[in-house]
Simulated scan of single mutants.
Amino acid sequence: MDSKVRRAPDAEWVLMYRLGLSRKRIADLVGAEPATVGYHLVIARRQDPRLEAAHLAAAGTNPKPSASSLACMDEIIAWIEAKGRLPRERSEDKSERSMARWLSDRRREAVQGTLHGAYREGLAGVQGWGRNHRAAAEEARWHRRLAQLVDFREEGNDWPRHRRCDSEREHTLGVWIHTQRSKHRRGKLEAEKVKLLDTAVPGWQAGRTRGRPPRQ
């Protein structure tokens, strides 16, 4: 396994990203795979939520919201004030679903540190608009499981099994990686997560070879 994965995030790569360089440009300069650089940057952004905003500011890629988008925000705020609740993504009303998706996009930008000040100021009076505890918890759990799998493999273990396991730890990790493989086969696993898995635990898609004895 690449030693840089275990030392993530690389301080030099993070500094280059903070100064506005793209992931691909950093990879070209340091002679690393873009996915490897991306893995380091994912960890760095989690450690410093302001990193993405600094990167975009340095790169000059955080444009001012359009007049139509600001008007959309005003309409959503008025709707929330009238209804007394946030729009729902599973609503039967198409316009309500559209408003919910708009808020979801702004929520993601807020988490990444890229939410434009105009949106932040406009939404400041909308109580609870930025909350998405379930999604945040699921995302954190995914990255925690990946880190646990990295540790498991670095200890010299074979790929964890989800059946006939030697320990509860192996079972937990075996179920998790089995789920990732299943999602990937169905095209349901996000591209960023595929890259993280490819970088952190190469060979994860194949796993154990049937009948192969465990590592010694």
Rank of each mutant, 00 (worst) to 15 (best):
R25T: 12
V5G: 12
L15K: 11
E154M: 09
H133K: 14
P214D: 11
I76G: 03
G38M: 10
S22W: 02
A44D: 06
E81T: 07
P87Y: 05
V37Y: 09
D158M: 06
K195I: 00
S69L: 12
R120S: 13
A58Q: 07
R131Y: 03
D151P: 01
Q127G: 04
L29S: 09
D151W: 02
D105C: 10
L196I: 10
N157D: 04
A118N: 00
R101K: 11
V175A: 10
S91H: 04
H40N: 12
Q47N: 10
R164W: 05
A32N: 06
G174C: 05
Q148V: 03
P9E: 14
I76Q: 01
R23F: 07
G20Y: 02
E52L: 03
E192N: 11
A78C: 01
L15S: 11
E109D: 13
Q148F: 03
S167P: 03
V150F: 05
L196E: 12
H40W: 06
A206R: 12
A147G: 11
H143M: 12
D28I: 04
R185D: 13
L15C: 08
L56Y: 05
E168H: 06
R212E: 15
L70M: 15
S3A: 14
R85Q: 13
H133I: 11
A200C: 14
R18E: 13
R6Y: 06
I26M: 05
A8T: 06
F152S: 00
H55N: 12
Q112A: 12
L173C: 02
A32M: 07
D198I: 07
G125D: 11
R186M: 08
R46V: 09
H40M: 08
P214V: 04
R153Y: 03
I77T: 14
K188E: 15
G211R: 01
L86E: 03
R145S: 13
G130F: 04
R106I: 02
A11Q: 03
Y39T: 09
A58S: 15
G211Y: 00
A110W: 03
H162K: 10
P213G: 00
P49R: 11
P160Q: 06
V150D: 13
R210V: 10
K195D: 11
G156N: 10
R90E: 12
G31L: 13
S69W: 08
R85K: 14
E33F: 06
A8M: 14
A191E: 13
E121L: 01
K4R: 15
G211L: 01
G20P: 07
R210E: 09
H184M: 07
H171M: 07
A11S: 09
G122W: 02
E75P: 02
I26K: 00
R45N: 12
